[in-house]
Amino acid sequence: MPPCPICESSQTVKNGRIHNGKQRFKCHNCRRQFVEQPTKKVIAQATRELIDRLLLERISLAGIARAAQVSEQWLQTYVNQKYAMMPQSVQVTQKKKGRLTIQCDELWSFVADKRHKQWVWLALDSNTREIVGVYIGARDEAAARQLWNSLPAVYRQCAVAYTDFWAAYGAVLPKKRHQAVGKETGKTSYIERFNNTLRQRVSRADRKTLSFSKSLDNHIGAIWYFIHHDNASLLV
């Protein structure tokens, strides 16, 4: 067996293979995992663009690594950097003051395990179908206020908001422009449909998944990444 490149111990054993089939070794002394004669692989731009598209589908990072033929370690670093740079404010078409209508709802998700709930609060423009407000956090009055504050100013000034009967909405939204309605009215159907799409396309938001987030920052980044993509697709 080859010696460890870190501690030079000869107490090494075979430890599976890396994504390209090359033999991997493990040092019993320092626990380092390594391959013989490693080469730095430059990831082509076409592969990066493929990964960007796959991140918008309900595929685990391990699945993306297999499909794109990159290492999971490289992919995790790439994803961490991408999500860290993701803008966390809505980017929507400019609206004039006038009659605007939004639908609001909150979506349950979790990070690491189901004890650490993260609610995704969303507001959707009923006319353009754009997501115009986002907040990810608890499910309380403070979170509802964060959703309200995330709306562009024209919506806070003019929009009529349709929501379910969750009390936090009534405590935050202007009473004259807030209407709590049941699902049977159809007045929150667009946002409910978007929630379903989000669960189908972003595996981290699914109720039962092995692709859940271990990092809150990446959980938030993945959701924002999909929202920005969805809003941009409405302009095509």
Rank of each mutant, 00 (worst) to 15 (best):
T12V: 12
I223L: 15
H19S: 14
Y225L: 06
Y78R: 04
T77I: 06
F194M: 11
A84I: 03
H19Q: 12
L235F: 07
D206Y: 09
R177F: 12
A68T: 00
K175L: 10
S213I: 05
E130A: 13
E36V: 15
A112C: 09
A222L: 05
L210M: 13
Q33N: 15
R193Q: 13
A67L: 10
P87T: 09
S189V: 08
L234G: 10
R17S: 11
Q94P: 05
K22H: 11
W166A: 09
A67E: 14
S71D: 04
Q91S: 15
A123N: 08
N218E: 02
I6N: 14
D125Y: 01
N195G: 15
A112P: 12
G16C: 02
H28N: 13
K95H: 11
R199V: 03
T77R: 14
T188M: 03
F25Q: 01
Q103T: 13
S215K: 09
V120P: 02
L198Y: 06
V92T: 14
S109P: 11
Y190R: 14
N127M: 11
R201P: 06
R204K: 14
Q91A: 15
L100G: 03
A65D: 02
H178M: 10
W108Q: 14
L147S: 07
A167L: 06
S60W: 04
A161R: 00
R24M: 09
D105M: 10
S150R: 04
K26W: 05
G221D: 03
A232T: 08
K97S: 13
Q179C: 12
N231Y: 12
A153D: 15
H116N: 14
G63Y: 00
W119N: 10
K114F: 05
I191C: 11
N15L: 01
W108P: 02
P2K: 08
N149E: 12
E106L: 10
A222P: 02
I131A: 08
Q88E: 08
A159I: 01
P38W: 00
T12Y: 03
W119G: 10
F25W: 11
I102Q: 01
K14I: 05
A143H: 03
K82R: 14
K176E: 15
V70G: 01
L122P: 04
Y135C: 02
E192P: 07
S126G: 08
N195E: 08
T197W: 08
N195D: 12
Q23H: 06
Q45H: 06
E49D: 15
D52A: 15
Q45W: 04
G182F: 14
K114V: 03
C30W: 12
W74M: 00
T128C: 12
T39E: 12
P87A: 07
K22D: 12
A222E: 00
V13S: 10
T93M: 13
S213G: 07
T47H: 09
Y169I: 03
Q146R: 06
A153R: 11
A67F: 05
T93C: 11
I59V: 14
S109R: 07
G170P: 01
V79E: 02
W108G: 04
A168F: 08
H19W: 13
A144C: 09
S150Y: 10
E57K: 15
V42G: 04
L173G: 00
L198K: 05
